[in-house]
Simulated assay, not measured.
Amino acid sequence: MDTRLLLVSHAATAAQRAGRFPADDPLDARGRAEAEAARTRLALPADATVFTSPAVCARETAAALGLSATPADALADIDYGQWRGQRLAEIADQAPHQLAAWTREPDAAPPGGESFGELVRRIGDWLDAQQANAHSCNAVNEATFGAPAHGRSIVAITHAPLLRAAIVHALGASPAVFCRIEIAPLSVVELRHSRRGWTWWPAATV
């Protein structure tokens, strides 16, 4: 059974616009309005299984998009450790070398936080688990009905670093390329799994 996965980055928060590291911030009125306006543009499949990060901003984005979603811990934002809730400008003053390393080196992490390399492994495990589940469903379908199932669609509302990490995993690329991937709020990354493994496709939007 082939799998089509659409990863959606949550709408912007006031904390993001203020240059703060996330701290489980909710959407403000502007972010919620942007998400609601994107419902038609994103053209998400109506029959998809929908997951979301446990973060408030992701769950509120899913609701604004009209989606009923199941929270998944694996889709949580990268752990910012001691930088959580602080302004980027403050960290640049207090720990410029640590910040510079974190923005360039996949194995560098905020104090007490998670590196991008670790995030790639986390999302990779989740992606592989989704495909394992698809194979299990296909085996049950063949045993019960004697015919393979049609492709499965999944939507995941999560965070920009997760979309970057998923692309890196799908391409089998070095995590060092993460700083060259830009993900805006309400962006969509489409991955598909077939016999070739995971591939990255241009996301179809209206």
Rank of each mutant, 00 (worst) to 15 (best):
M1Y: 08
D2C: 01
T3Y: 00
T3L: 05
L5M: 02
L7G: 00
L7F: 13
V8I: 11
S9D: 05
A11Y: 03
R17I: 03
A18N: 15
G19Y: 06
G19Q: 12
R20A: 04
R20S: 09
F21K: 04
P22N: 05
A23W: 02
D25Q: 10
P26V: 14
P26D: 03
P26Y: 10
R30I: 15
R30A: 14
A35V: 00
E36Y: 08
A37H: 09
R39S: 06
L42T: 01
L44K: 01
L44C: 04
P45N: 09
A46W: 15
T49P: 01
V50F: 01
V50L: 04
F51M: 06
T52E: 10
S53Y: 09
S53V: 07
P54H: 07
A55C: 10
C57E: 06
A58V: 07
A58N: 07
T61W: 05
A63L: 07
A64R: 03
A64D: 08
L65Q: 05
L67W: 02
A69E: 05
A72P: 02
A72D: 14
A74C: 08
L75N: 01
A76K: 05
Y80H: 13
G81R: 03
Q82P: 03
Q82M: 15
W83R: 08
W83A: 03
Q86S: 15
Q86H: 11
R87H: 13
L88H: 07
L88D: 04
I91G: 00
D93W: 10
H97W: 13
A101K: 01
R104W: 11
P106R: 01
P106V: 01
D107L: 01
A108H: 13
A108M: 10
P111G: 03
P111Q: 12
G112N: 12
G112L: 09
E118P: 12
R121I: 15
R121W: 14
D125W: 12
D125I: 08
W126S: 06
W126H: 15
A129Q: 14
Q130A: 08
Q130K: 05
A134G: 11
A134M: 07
H135F: 11
C137H: 12
N138R: 11
V140N: 01
N141T: 15
N141Q: 13
A143Y: 00
P148A: 12
A149Y: 00
H150Q: 10
I154T: 02
A156M: 11
I157N: 01
T158S: 06
I167E: 10
V168D: 00
H169Q: 11
A173W: 08
A173G: 02
S174E: 13
S174T: 14
P175D: 05
P175Q: 04
A176D: 14
V177L: 13
F178G: 00
C179F: 07
C179P: 01
L186E: 04
L191S: 04
L191K: 02
R192G: 04
S194H: 13
G197V: 15
W198S: 00
P202Y: 03
A203K: 04
T205A: 05
